[in-house]
């Protein structure tokens, strides 16, 4: 090792000014993108998963529920879009859980940076991943004959609502990702929450066909609101009240689980 260049490099004339929260978060996002470049298979969950979901449910239930797959596709695509993206949010927690096990998290936590940047950066990239999933599903839907009555702008609005909701939902998984010790346990907990949440909603069928007690649950399930809002935005009917409720729920999720996440993040042993 050359001592001269070593000693020269050790002496740093001036410290740079502290990075802004935004810049720190974007730097973490950049790192997540780099990781995807090295291991593109990481994108399996947002590419293959949505395709399988859409094909499977359209052709499995289409005939039985709507009489034809074509008609059902128009009904179910917004729902599956919400369901798939909501399911994918789970991986945020799993990735975080794996990451924390490694020593690099200790370094992040000992850096003089805006601490939430570690998580916000990761979630920003996740939003990109969710958009990818949405794009793939909608494209495939169009190939299969899906048509949005409100046109392209309706789709874009619906996707934005789904992304916003998913971003808020992710904070539940980041919290669990920090608190829960093993990846398997985390997977089990996430599934346990996500399966009833996504299936017991208006994703697949009209809630009015369900027994009364189930309708009560479906009616207060946040996923139902997001599905109904997406359907309305895509097919062009008024969903102002749903959008308002989604905003409340999302802000609430971020406030509660974002705070808890940061609390556990700071106080992790």
């Amino acid at each position: 090792m050359e001592n001269n260049s070593l000693e020269k490099s050790i002496k740093l004339e001036k410290r740079p000014p502290k990075a802004s929260p935004m810049s720190a978060a974007l730097t973490f996002a950049w790192r997540a993108l780099l990781r995807i470049r090295y291991v593109p298979e990481q994108l399996f969950d947002v590419t293959v998963f949505p395709i399988i979901f859409l094909l499977m449910f359209t052709y499995l239930f289409g005939g039985a529920i709507s009489g034809s797959t074509g008609e059902y596709l128009d009904f179910v695509l917004p729902g599956i879009l919400v369901m798939t993206v909501a399911m994918i949010t789970m991986y945020t927690g799993l990735d975080l859980n794996k990451d924390i096990e490694k020593g690099v998290f200790d370094r992040f936590r000992s850096l003089p940076i805006w601490q939430p940047a570690v998580l916000v950066g990761a979630l920003l990239v996740d939003v990109v991943r969710y958009s990818l999933a949405a794009t793939i599903m909608i494209t495939l839907g169009y190939i299969l004959g899906f048509r949005a009555e409100a046109g392209f702008s309706g789709i874009v609005l619906a996707v934005l609502v789904i992304l916003f909701f998913s971003f808020s939902l992710s904070w539940i998984w980041t919290m669990l990702g920090i608190v829960v010790r093993s990846e398997k346990a985390l997977m089990a907990i996430s599934m346990m929450l996500l399966f009833p949440l996504t299936f017991l909603s208006s994703v697949f069928v009209d809630p009015s066909t369900m027994p009364n007690w189930l309708q009560h649950f479906v009616d207060i399930n946040p996923i139902t609101f997001v599905v109904d809002a997406s359907r309305g935005l895509i097919h062009g009917y008024d969903v102002t009240s749903e959008l308002l409720i989604i905003t409340y729920i999302s802000v609430g999720l971020i406030a509660v689980f974002g705070t808890l996440t940061m609390y556990f993040f700071r106080n992790k042993n």
């Binding site: 502290k18 990075a19 973490f28 950049w30």
Partner: peptide, 10 residues
């Protein structure tokens, strides 16, 4: 580069 950016370098 990543750590450099985090500590505030351009």
């Amino acid at each position: 580069i990543f750590i450099g950016r985090l500590v505030g370098f351009s």
